[in-house]
C-alpha cells in the first residue's frame, strides 16, 4: 500500500505541525498584523488592504472535493487546477476596484463582514525577515434585509517584514476553505 504523501496535505505539512519557534515579541507583532488586516477588510478600506500585499504576492484558494479515505491525499486540487482564487497583485487590484464602481451588486449595498482571526501559529524561515504563519478565520457576513452566512477556513501565509504602518507585507497566501461545495451564494469578500 502506498503511504499517503503528507506533503500534498496542505494542512498537514511537517513545517506547519512543528512547534512554534518565533519569539513572543514576534508572535505578538504577527498577531497584531493579522488583526489589523482584518480590521481594514471589515472597515471597507480595501485599498489600504491591497497595500499590504507584496508586489510578487500569490493569493490562492484551491477547491477541494470529497474523497474516499484511501484517496484522502487527493482531496485538495493541486496548483494550476481547480481554485476559487489564483491571483496576482494586478488581479487583486481589479477585484478591489470593482467594489468601488457602485455597480458591484454583490456588494452594493455593501455587506457587513466580521473577520475573526484565531489559532495563529508562526515559524521562522530561511530568511530572517520572512515568517510562515498559519491562522484560522471565521468570516461572518450579513447583507440586505435577512441574508447571513459564514465562511470558515485556515490560511497559510508567508509574511515579510516591511516598512509600513503595520510592519509586514503578505508575500504569499493560501486560503483553505473548510467547505467542499460552497454553501454560500458567492465569495464576495477577501479571506
Amino acid at each position: 500500500m502506498n503511504k499517503p504523501d503528507k506533503v500534498t496535505h496542505l494542512f498537514k505539512r511537517p513545517e506547519h505541525l512543528a512547534p512554534v519557534n518565533v519569539t513572543m515579541e514576534t508572535a505578538y507583532e504577527i498577531e497584531q498584523f493579522l488583526y489589523a488586516e482584518a480590521e481594514l477588510l471589515d472597515a471597507w478600506e480595501f485599498n489600504d488592504w491591497l497595500a499590504l500585499m507584496a508586489a510578487d504576492v500569490h493569493y490562492w484558494a484551491p477547491v477541494r472535493e470529497n474523497r474516499m479515505a484511501r484517496e484522502a491525499e487527493q482531496e485538495m486540487y493541486p496548483p494550476g487546477t481547480a481554485a476559487h482564487f489564483d491571483e496576482n497583485l494586478q488581479m487583486l487590484g481589479q477585484r478591489v476596484a470593482r467594489l468601488y464602481t457602485h455597480m458591484s451588486w454583490s456588494e452594493s449595498p455593501a455587506s457587513r463582514t466580521r473577520h475573526l482571526i484565531s489559532n495563529v501559529r508562526a515559524h521562522t524561515t530561511d530568511k530572517a525577515d520572512e515568517f510562515q504563519v498559519q491562522s484560522s478565520f471565521h468570516v461572518y457576513r450579513t447583507s440586505s434585509e435577512r441574508h447571513q452566512d459564514s465562511v470558515v477556513g485556515r490560511r497559510f501565509d508567508l509574511l515579510r517584514r516591511a516598512d509600513n504602518a503595520y510592519g509586514f507585507q503578505i508575500a504569499d497566501r493560501t486560503v483553505v476553505f473548510d467547505m467542499s461545495m460552497l454553501l454560500v451564494k458567492n465569495l464576495s469578500s477577501f479571506y
Binding site: 476559487h84 477585484r95 470593482r98 458591484s104 451588486w105 454583490s106 456588494e107 451564494k185 458567492n186 465569495l187
Partner: peptide, 14 residues
C-alpha cells in the same frame, strides 16, 4: 463563486 461576473448574478437571483 468568487468571480467578478458570477457574484452579481447570485444577488439578482436571490
Amino acid at each position: 463563486p468568487a468571480g467578478m461576473f458570477e457574484q452579481d448574478d447570485a444577488v439578482n437571483w436571490e
